[in-house]
Structures are given as C-alpha cells and as structure tokens.
C-alpha cells in the first residue's frame, strides 16, 4: 500500500515536471517568435515606406508637370497670336480628353483638378499608421510573452523546473528604449 502511495506521488511529480517543462518551452518559443515578429515588421516598414513614398512622389511629379503645362497652355490661349492660341487650345483639349486630369477640369479651369496623388496620400497615411501599429503591437506582444515567461520562472512552484533543467532557464530582456532615448522622446513636442 505504502509503496503504491510513494509510486503515485512520484508519478504525479514526473507528470507535473513534464507538463511544466513543456509550458516553459512553449513560452520560450513564444518569446523568440514575437522577437522575430519585431524584425519582420521593421523590415516590412522599410520596404513598404520606400515603395509607397516613391509611388506617391512619382504621381506628384507627374501631376505637377501636367499642372504646369496646363497653366502655361492656358496663358498661351490668351496670346495675341491666333496660331499659338489655337494650338494651345487643341493641346489643352487633348490633355483633358486623355483623362490625365479629371473631368471637372473642362468645366471650371480655376478649381484644382482631383489629382490621383491625394488618393495615394490617403493610402500612404493608412499604411503608415497600420505599419507603425503593427510594429508597436509586435513589441507589446513580445513584452507580454517575456512577462509570462518571467512570471513562471520566478513564481513558486514552477521556479523549480528551470533550476532542474537548465535548458529552459533563460534571461529575456523587455523591449524598451534606452535611458537617453526616453529622455529625448519625453522632451519631443509636436511643432508646426
């Protein structure tokens, strides 16, 4: 009978040890994975921003060119030389017909045409917000995972497991800014 009790206790202890070990492994993997997620998001940020900004820039340059040309042609239509004026008129209608500017243009020349760049700007803005959010949340998730691991490593009785099995005994640092960075960020104000 006593033998059975002793064996039972040992069996329970072994099961507890195995389950605890597995939990530690899961948490370590969670920390590692979320750490990688941060670099994935950083990498993504660089690429997304570069390509988006260059797209928007291209659009803006192109449309700026079109606008400048339109302005020039408009002043030429006022020209005293009827030939120049007519040519300018034709070219203007060509630009309008080609759809490079929105249809609103031929109704009122004065209003700003609805340029594609503004739409792109909106998308760029959303991408910036979302990408920054993803990066932030990845850092947050990382810190949460570090916290969960540390909590288990330091609390009783699970603290025994890393002492027995050293492969699950890890030292993880929370993600945070350095002291100087915190100071400079603290003093940062939005200025227009």
């Amino acid at each position: 009978m006593e033998l059975f009790i002793v064996l039972g206790v040992i069996a329970v202890l072994i099961i507890w040890l195995i389950m605890g070990y597995n939990k530690f492994i899961a948490q370590i993997e969670a920390v590692t994975n979320s750490e990688k997620e941060i670099s994935v998001q950083l990498d993504r940020r660089g690429k997304v921003f570069d390509s988006l900004i260059s797209t928007v820039k291209k659009y803006m340059e192109h449309e700026e060119g079109v606008l400048a040309k339109v302005t020039e042609l408009r002043s030429q239509t006022q020209s005293s030389d009827p030939k120049v004026a007519e040519q300018a008129q034709n070219e203007l209608s060509n630009i309008v017909a080609s759809g490079e500017l929105s249809k609103g243009l031929n109704i009122t020349m004065e209003a700003y045409p609805d340029l594609k760049a503004s739409n792109n700007m909106m998308q760029l803005q959303e991408e910036i917000v979302s990408t920054e959010n993803k990066l932030n949340f990845a850092k947050k998730a990382f810190n949460n995972n570090v916290e969960n691991y540390n909590k288990m490593r330091k609390s009783f009785p699970s603290l025994i497991i890393p002492k027995v099995i050293s492969s699950v005994d890890k030292e993880f640092e929370y993600w945070s800014l350095s002291e100087e960075d915190i100071k400079t960020q603290e003093e940062k104000r939005v200025e227009f």
Partner: peptide, 21 residues
C-alpha cells in the same frame, strides 16, 4: 476599397498584438 483595407490592416494588427500565430 479604402475602408476594407483599413479593416484588414486592423485585423492583422490585432492578431500581432494578441500574439496569434
């Protein structure tokens, strides 16, 4: 459309924040 992209972005953000794989 723009709103749909925003929703999709937010769902991804939340999955990251929750540490879902």
């Amino acid at each position: 459309d723009h709103d749909e992209k925003v929703v999709l972005n937010i769902v991804e953000e939340m999955a990251i924040s929750a540490g879902l794989n």
